[in-house]
Amino acid sequence: MGSTRKITVIGGGFAGLTAAITAAEAGAEVTLHEAHHTLGGRARTADGPYLTNDGPHALYSGGPHRTWLKQRGLLGELAPLPALQAAKLRFHHRGALRRTPPLGLLRQSFRTGEQAPVDIDFLTWASGLVGEPAARAAAAYSGVALYHHDPGALSARFVQERLHRAASIPPEATFVKGGWGRLIDRMAARARDLGVRIETGSRIDTPPTDGGPVVVATTLAAAARLLDDPSLSWESGRTVLYDLALRTRKGDPFAISDLDAPGWVERFTTQDPSLAPDGQQLIQAQLPIAPGESKADGVAHVERLLDLGFAGWRERTVWRREALSNGRTGAVDRPGTTWRDRPAVDRGDGVYLAGDQVAAPGVLAEVSFTSAVEAVSLALRGTRGHRPLDLKRA
């Protein structure tokens, strides 16, 4: 038996903790460095009384990380959406709030017999199937899983996968009760139980040179700085994140999907009342904005949707917060590209990338999970003295 292999993980978000747990389960000695004083990255949940995430977060039931979490007892209690409340989804279409989406959008959303092409934009491809108006509405609806201002301009296959996942019945999206911070706490406890050394407030400016593999589980921009590699870039979105607490009123919708321009407003206390104090409801919205638009443009967009769906919301407001998320909402693939064209997980010289903008399949957080497992698999491949990584279990 060889000596225990050491692995360093830089970044303590969802990807970093996934990598640390996976490596420790395979017998590696793992040290995780997180520059922030708390773990979680974009999966942090704010302290009360309003348990907000850094933008709307969901676990898709068809995703690989949900199975992985469940196998390890990390999934915890989920907050299902009551069927009666799901019926309160509203659609902003042609300037009005509607109870049902256009028929063409439904036909496109549930179309499963034909795989969309990679090298054509979604709007062009879908317009040939259901007409341009319905194709534009379908593209806008997919924005809930894209965070991009112009989904129709992206690769048809990229958008199609996300549209099918977002529009599935029953819904694939489920929610971690109490916010994603609860999930991060469980993952951190699991990592420590496996012997992972977790160092918070530990900023790494250059990769360690002790000879062991390094998994860089940061944003792609941070990885580019750390590795002095400007080629580490990929397109993402610019999104205004808008959090709002209102005094409860009967008749408010569960969510509003804007089919005229990508945007999503959701009342998260519908499925998890613990996210806000009694008598209040927590709303989180994401409004993608174009490169030339400002945060104020996104705020104005969400407030127009609130005016339509949440009567008297200004008088009922007890708390609000606005933020601009720039390049932090996952990778988007243009026509002619797929996830395989993004920055590779294996960077050579024992350095590996994990995160939501690298070359790994999946939707949103699934990319972080898949890339983290792949990074550890590559790091440990062929190493003596280690149990082989069970990728089926992972």
Rank of each mutant, 00 (worst) to 15 (best):
R238C: 01
P388Y: 11
A173D: 13
T67V: 06
Y60R: 01
E25A: 09
V214W: 04
E235A: 14
P213Q: 01
Q85I: 10
D47A: 09
F122W: 07
L129R: 13
L232N: 04
R94S: 13
H36P: 00
V196C: 04
P288T: 05
D228R: 14
A140E: 02
L97K: 04
G76Y: 12
S168W: 12
T218F: 01
A167R: 03
A145L: 12
M187G: 10
I204V: 13
V363P: 00
I283L: 15
G131F: 10
P213G: 00
I204W: 08
I21F: 09
R157H: 08
G178H: 02
W319S: 07
P170D: 12
E114D: 13
G336Y: 15
E114V: 12
L324W: 11
R5Y: 03
W180V: 03
G178K: 04
F175C: 03
Y60E: 08
P171D: 01
L154N: 02
L97R: 07
A276H: 05
F110W: 15
P80N: 09
K6G: 05
T248E: 15
A134G: 08
D341L: 11
K70Q: 10
F110L: 09
H93D: 14
A359M: 09
D341V: 10
I283P: 02
A140W: 01
T317W: 06
V118C: 00
P343A: 08
W180Q: 11
D356V: 00
G330W: 04
Q286V: 00
L74H: 12
L84Q: 12
Q108N: 00
G237R: 07
T337L: 14
Y60M: 13
A173S: 13
I283N: 02
R186S: 14
A394C: 06
A138Y: 10
T112D: 01
L380R: 07
P213C: 05
T22P: 02
V345N: 05
V367N: 08
Q115L: 07
G73Q: 09
P262R: 08
L51W: 04
P277Y: 02
S155W: 08
I21M: 03
R190E: 15
M1P: 12
I21D: 06
A167T: 05
R203W: 00
L105R: 00
R192I: 07
H148P: 02
A296V: 08
P213F: 04
S371N: 13
L364P: 00
P273H: 02
P151E: 02
E366D: 14
D390W: 09
R190Y: 09
S109W: 15
F310H: 14
L232E: 11
Q284W: 10
H57L: 02
G95F: 12
G13D: 06
L146W: 03
G292L: 05
K295R: 12
D210W: 05
S371E: 01
R334T: 15
Q271T: 12
D243H: 06
V216D: 04
A173F: 06
Y50P: 06
L244M: 03
D228P: 00
L78T: 13
V176L: 05
K177F: 03
S274T: 07
V265S: 11
L74V: 14
A28G: 11
R267M: 12
I256A: 12
